[in-house]
Design a protein around this nucleic acid. Sequence first.
DNA 1: CCGTATCCAATAAGATACTG
DNA 2: CAGTATCTTATTGGATACGG
Lengths: 219, 219
Amino acid sequence: MGKTEAKRRYDDACGTAHGLELIGERWALLVLRELMLGARRFSDLRADLPGISANVLTQRLTELEDRGLVRRKKLPPPASSNVYEATEWGLEAEPIVQVLGRWAARSPMHDPTMPISATSIMLSLKTMADEKRAKGFEARIGFRFGEERFVGRMRKGRFKVARAEPVDTDFTFTGTPPQLAAVIYGGAPLDSIGFDGDAGLARKFVTLFPLPPKASVAG
Amino acid sequence: MGKTEAKRRYDDACGTAHGLELIGERWALLVLRELMLGARRFSDLRADLPGISANVLTQRLTELEDRGLVRRKKLPPPASSNVYEATEWGLEAEPIVQVLGRWAARSPMHDPTMPISATSIMLSLKTMADEKRAKGFEARIGFRFGEERFVGRMRKGRFKVARAEPVDTDFTFTGTPPQLAAVIYGGAPLDSIGFDGDAGLARKFVTLFPLPPKASVAG
DNA sequence: CCGTATCCAATAAGATACTG
DNA sequence: CAGTATCTTATTGGATACGG
């Protein structure tokens, strides 16, 4: 592995090239993305990243740890397992995830009907919230995806979100991440996902995340 | 190659994952970066990307073309060779390059004493210009790197640049991209690079691109 | 359950030589 | 100069087995 890093550099002083040496390997940025909203266990990451194999995940986590982007924490005795969390610098990679995601949303080849993790869909709402359209809209929104719970807040045109139990929310969605994606991005009806709370507010909320126009491949 | 793409997808609806499928292969983003300031020939790209091999460059260009990010143009008869240029959507990837570069500049492992292409250093000035520090500073700046010529303009805290012959500039640098990098980012003296024009303005100019504080690897 | 280690087959990347 | 072809090496992913 040490050898790897020596041989696969880009030999380029440009910051972009260095960035790719840090998080350019396959899966690396997606692993980091899954840690953006809090620490995760090895098996959580495997479940959230369909297709990653255990050995590749181990290697990516080790590399990200060596580079100072991820920290491994041992849980106290009863659990006695590890969790992985992003360091402060690792968290600062969020704009990369966002900019890349927003750019790729223009792709004519993008198929939004695929699996998506809870963290992904939550981050995508931060990315795609349309500041102008959301201006003046204010709400606390709960999300329940199985055991994973989030509370978001739309305010001043910005969407913020953190892991928390939905209490005192204006409305709360209950379902799967792909169901929510279908409602927000695919125009599926609100009642295709479990929902309770203020339906008027919710109906408005789901329109605040417009997809950008597709790029024409003719360029 | 069709098979490749089928097998190495991320199966993830997240835009970030799709972005990585588009420009996540090794070298892809760096190839695109080299096209950000205008069309380049195959051999230009090989020269600007130290270490890329011809077959990999061929493959990346083909893929980027298939995906609608790059366009191949045949030059008129006398030259009869091709150039590659970014499509409009390809050019929209510039924020990705910038955000990644700015983030990576915090890396404690970053070695800025390496080769750097003319396009890279020009883009890095756009990325790293400090809006506050540059506020009120206004100048037209020429750059000569061998045959490659650029004219930049610093105005309202922003740096813009395009390929053009330096005429009517306030000052002009003549040298190599690493020399300019040493002056701007490494604190090397102004006379370590060829220079003519308004020295006072130039001395101020080179201070407008501060590097961010290094991340502590302890996280 | 939480990982890590090992082995194997399929690909991608790198080096080099070669052709129009 | 602009790529192709070929060969070698490295990385990836999948399966499985193994220790805590």
